[in-house]
Amino acid sequence: MSETSLDTPDKDAETSVTEKAYWSQNIRLLCTLMSIWFLVSFGAGILFRDFLDQFAIGGYPLGFWFAQQGAIYFFILLIIIYNVRMKRIERQYDLDD
């Protein structure tokens, strides 16, 4: 057997551990951001609407604003956060381009 074929199992094992760690961080980040989005869109727009309607933005009750506009703005913000964090995670695992 050649020397390269002997090194392959170790490299495969190392790659497998790296891949698992990478995907673990990726899924954890995704679950965190989706939970935040759920709380903002469902919580602020529906569950906490009565409380938030005491306040106003641009003449509209805050609960209504979150249901119509705020959840969208938060979703865009979460996409930006995901992009920044994923670039950092990819650099950590040497997967950046």
Rank of each mutant, 00 (worst) to 15 (best):
M1W: 00
M1C: 04
E3V: 08
S5W: 06
S5G: 09
S5F: 07
T8D: 11
T8E: 13
P9D: 00
D10Y: 10
D12V: 15
A13M: 00
A13P: 00
T15E: 12
V17L: 14
E19W: 04
E19G: 00
K20V: 14
K20E: 13
A21T: 11
Y22L: 03
W23Y: 15
W23S: 14
S24W: 05
Q25C: 15
Q25A: 15
R28T: 14
L29H: 04
L29G: 03
C31V: 13
L33N: 05
L33F: 04
S35P: 01
I36Q: 08
I36W: 06
W37Q: 10
W37C: 06
W37Y: 11
F38W: 03
L39S: 15
L39Q: 10
S41R: 00
F42Q: 05
F42I: 05
A44W: 02
A44I: 02
I46Q: 14
L47I: 08
L47G: 05
F48R: 05
F48N: 06
F48W: 09
R49L: 03
D50W: 07
D50S: 13
D50H: 11
D53A: 09
I57T: 12
G58A: 00
G58L: 03
Y60G: 07
P61K: 00
P61C: 02
G63H: 03
G63D: 02
F64V: 06
W65T: 03
F66Q: 01
F66S: 02
A67Q: 10
G70M: 09
G70R: 07
A71V: 03
I72E: 11
I79G: 10
I79T: 12
I80D: 02
I81R: 07
Y82H: 04
N83P: 03
V84G: 04
R85S: 10
R85G: 10
M86R: 07
M86D: 02
R88A: 13
R88L: 11
R88G: 05
I89L: 06
R91G: 08
D94A: 11
D94P: 05
D94L: 14
L95V: 02
D96L: 06
D96C: 04
D97A: 03
D97E: 04
D97V: 04
D97Y: 09
